[in-house]
Design a protein around this nucleic acid. Structure first.
Length: 582
RNA sequence: GGGGCUGUAGCUCAGUUGGUUAGAGUGCCGGUCUGUCACACCGGAGGCCGCGGGUUCGAGUCCCGUCAGCCCCGCCA
């Protein structure tokens, strides 16, 4: 193909087809850059080898016209070699050039020059078929294809069976908002598009498919972000007769194989593991970016008795003083350090305090307000030395954790302290429940079928928020790639968990009775995982938005600009469905 | 639901304190050109200043509203 021609092809007669990437008309000679899926090659049109009619046609070709070219691959004259292009040592001497399909002048560019700005994203989404012709996007989707193929091959070798589950399913009152689909033959009733195949895959375990996977489309009607689309693709899998380690081993094999075979990046397995508690304690987040080496430490013992009121009163009120050492942070300007305070306030903390270490003392910020002994104790605990900056936040964990997390990530970036690499991490033992922010009542932190540590059985009734679940997340460079758990397969335990959630037998029966019923007929112990594939491909492609790896994405208002969805429908159609608009 | 940024030629952008005829680059059209590669050079066409309202003698510029795109918070079991 055009983009694949190299010096080894010199002398070959070729027939190429593709798009006019660019054209350079020198009067006597015309050069056409011909683009196909593989790339771009220069076609030279010379009256010595082309008929007068073909020369005239070549002169009139506009950008993005589809053409076919016949000719001979030739080495370029030495002074005409273009080292910038993969095909730059060769060109095709055209013997015939014909237009297969004309193109109107494109509203946005496909062939961007070195420092030309991309057209507005709104326009690129409106004319997605043109934008997708760009080499960056072509590369992303070839990458996506290879990731999907590698996953299927790897799981097949591990004897997983791919099973599809319904897209028209039962609405789920919990979790994200559902996309609803009216049923014409059952007026006043609705299907929902699946938020995930969760219940189906557990039932497949009851059915004996002891290793299931699916590359499943999922739908959630929530507000969008750069890394959140209303419809997205998950690698969903479930296994019977397994413990955590068995699930992790499969995921580690899949990830390492993809990273190795698709990106050529070796990844060490097994991945690092860390409990949820430890992640929050040492990094202030349940998805730590381990590329930044700094850790959060508890300074309450050192500063809880300080004369400095902010520290003392935080500890007296049941909170803690926590901080990080930022090596080399003294080079930061006072303004840059004061900005940390705003970052901390932005996530609910009262502020963030800093001080610079120099010449055995502390300069600026909170340093002069604490005693020399306190400073020594803190410096030792943080392993700090001259030239470092200490950043400290005081208060309850629910504010110090996010504040130190945001400070850590912010300074990691600005000080260029993010080490290169692929840092995978299992975060384990998430709490089974978390308090509802409005009512304080326990709600599932994963989903209501998540198993828990048998040792915590007695806590279920008395202190449910302390129960450790068997749920785990896979974190990659500070981004959550997926989550899973070992499930409950004992109907009695399931009943107890639902009771904690305030879901009585009748309600449970109504909402997911089909799952509970299935469990009465021999449910094997089972567990699984789901990986956000769009996010995974985005990371592999080095992108920052899912729109770069989804062929036809939605805008932040969940609109499709090319085809114009959603859209109003005719009254007749609504009437058929028994729906009246208000 | 809330906060922020953006909206001027097909595209990317400039546009002063509110001032009379809204500019540049690129693309497009016409011309010259046999080794270019974002070809070069000469000429030309091209504008609902997102939309609606207001202030003013006068609005691309100020005010209010609204729409769209993007980023973030809430939300996303």
């Amino acid at each position: 193909m055009a983009g694949g021609l190299r010096t080894e092809h010199v002398g070959a007669t070729v027939r190429l087809a593709g798009w006019v990437h660019r054209r350079r008309d020198l009067g006597g000679l015309v050069f056409i850059d011909l683009r196909d899926r593989q790339g771009v090659v220069q076609v030279s049109c010379d009256p010595e080898t082309l008929s007068e009619e073909a020369m005239e046609r070549a002169r009139r070709l506009g950008a993005e016209t589809v053409i076919a070219v016949e000719g001979v691959v030739a080495a370029r004259p030495p002074d005409a070699v273009n080292p910038e292009m993969p095909t730059g040592e060769v060109e095709v001497k055209a013997a015939e050039v014909v237009a297969l399909a004309p193109s109107e002048t494109p509203p946005i560019l496909v062939a961007y020059g070195a420092d030309e700005e991309l057209a507005a994203e709104e326009l690129r989404l409106r004319y997605r078929y043109l934008d997708l012709r760009r080499q960056e996007l072509q590369r992303n989707f070839q990458l996506r294809h290879r990731v999907f193929q590698t996953i299927r091959r790897t799981l097949d070798e591990l004897e997983f069976v791919e099973v599809e589950t319904p897209m028209l399913t039962r609405p789920t009152p919990e979790g994200a908002r559902d996309y609803l689909v009216p049923s014409r033959v059952n007026p006043r009733e609705f299907y929902a598009l699946p938020q995930s195949p969760q219940l189906y895959k557990q039932i497949l375990m009851v059915s004996g498919f002891d290793r299931y996977f699916q590359i499943a489309r999922c739908f959630r009607d929530e507000d969008l972000r750069a890394d959140r689309q209303p419809e997205f693709t998950q690698l969903d899998l479930e296994m019977s007769f397994v413990k955590e380690e068995d699930v992790w081993a499969v995921l580690e094999t899949v990830m390492a194989t993809v990273w190795q075979q698709v990106a050529g990046r070796p990844v060490e397995t097994p991945f690092l593991r860390m409990t949820h508690r430890e992640a929050l304690e040492s990094y202030g987040t349940d998805k730590p970016d381990l590329r930044i080496p700094w850790r959060v430490h508890d300074l309450s013992d050192d500063l809880g008795g300080s004369e400095f009121r902010i520290f003392r009163s935080a500890v007296e009120e049941g909170g803690r003083v926590r901080g990080i050492c930022v090596p080399g942070g003294s080079e930061l300007s006072r303004k840059a350090l004061d900005e940390l305070d705003g970052l901390a306030r932005g996530v609910g903390a009262a502020g963030a305090l800093w001080t610079r270490l120099a010449e055995g003392g502390a300069q600026g910020g909170f340093g002069p307000k604490i005693s020399a002994e306190e400073l020594t104790a803190v410096s030792e605990r943080l392993g700090a030395s001259d030239g470092d900056v200490l950043v400290v936040v005081a208060g309850p964990d629910r504010v110090t954790s996010p504040a130190l997390d945001v400070v850590r990530r912010h300074l990691g970036r600005t000080l260029d302290a993010v080490e290169p690499g692929d840092r995978f991490l299992w975060v384990t033992e998430f709490p089974l429940f978390e308090p509802d922010p409005d009512t304080g009542e326990p709600v599932p932190s994963h989903h209501p079928f998540t198993g828990f540590d048998p040792g915590d059985l007695d806590l279920l009734e008395n202190d449910p928020l302390a129960v450790r679940s068997r749920a785990y997340d896979l974190v990659y460079n500070g981004s959550e790639l997926g989550s899973g758990s070992i499930r409950i397969n004992d109907p009695e335990l399931q009943r107890q968990v639902l009771e904690v959630l305030g879901i009585g037998a009748e309600e449970a029966q109504r909402r997911f009775g089909f799952l509970l019923e299935a469990f009465r007929y021999g449910a094997p112990p089972h567990g699984g995982f789901a990986v956000g594939l769009d996010r995974m491909v985005m990371h592999l492609a080095g992108g920052s938005s899912l729109r770069e790896v989804i062929a036809f994405p939605k805008t932040t208002a969940a609109r499709a600009l090319m085809e114009g969805a959603p859209s109003p429908v005719d009254d007749d159609e609504l009437e058929d469905l028994g729906i009246k608009l208000v």
